[in-house]
Nucleic acid binder design. Sequence first.
DNA 1: CTTTGGATCGTCT
DNA 2: GACGATCCAAAGG
Length: 217
Amino acid sequence: MTRDHLAGGAVDLAPWLLGKILAHGSRAGRIVEVEAYGGAFDPASHAYRGRTARNQTMFEQAGHLYVYFTYGMHWCANVVAGPEGVGEAVLIRALSPIRGLAEMRGLRLAAGSDRDLCNGPAKLCQALGVTGSLDGADLITGDRVIRLVDDGTSPPHRPGNGPRVGITKAVDRPWRWWVADDRNVSGRGSRLGSPVGEAFGGHHPANGPCTQGAGKK
DNA sequence: CTTTGGATCGTCT
DNA sequence: GACGATCCAAAGG
């Protein structure tokens, strides 16, 4: 994994990140659900109105970790994408836990099962022990322990694809991708897969229409 | 399994 | 002063 891999736009980078590993200390999980957020052209993005104290990390070099606080109690993690100064990032929405499960359970007492450890953007931050103190960390050099790892696993050929979750602006952009059939995809998320596709000009090298089929059983 | 409402506070208007 | 890139417990099928 080099920084060059992440310098593309968030919309290209997001599906590419599926299958990569996010590791913090002895805890690690494979990325199975992501969302792309743009800069000044994306009304749903924190970077939409330009640089502020809160979102400054989004404008840094690709490969940095943008951690933000929301709803008065939750932390969420993003991988900064694109050229420096543009403000694009990929929100990590779910992981498939692969290492340090026991520690994760200790950090996430509310989890009723192992599937509940990392199946949500704020949940996976709890499980990995990610908080605002890690905002700005470099995921390539691992300067603050947390890092992105490529173990050779390829992204799915046909990932699930649909609208982003939990936003009220630019709701029609199909900028969420997930590993179809992975049970760790965020609960509500895997089901919201309306046939989108032509919702936004179709300029993006998407992956064909929404691949339903996750969820269930 | 699904739906509903409460929690809780930093950030920006 | 309003609103979240959310989660969880409770209650009903």
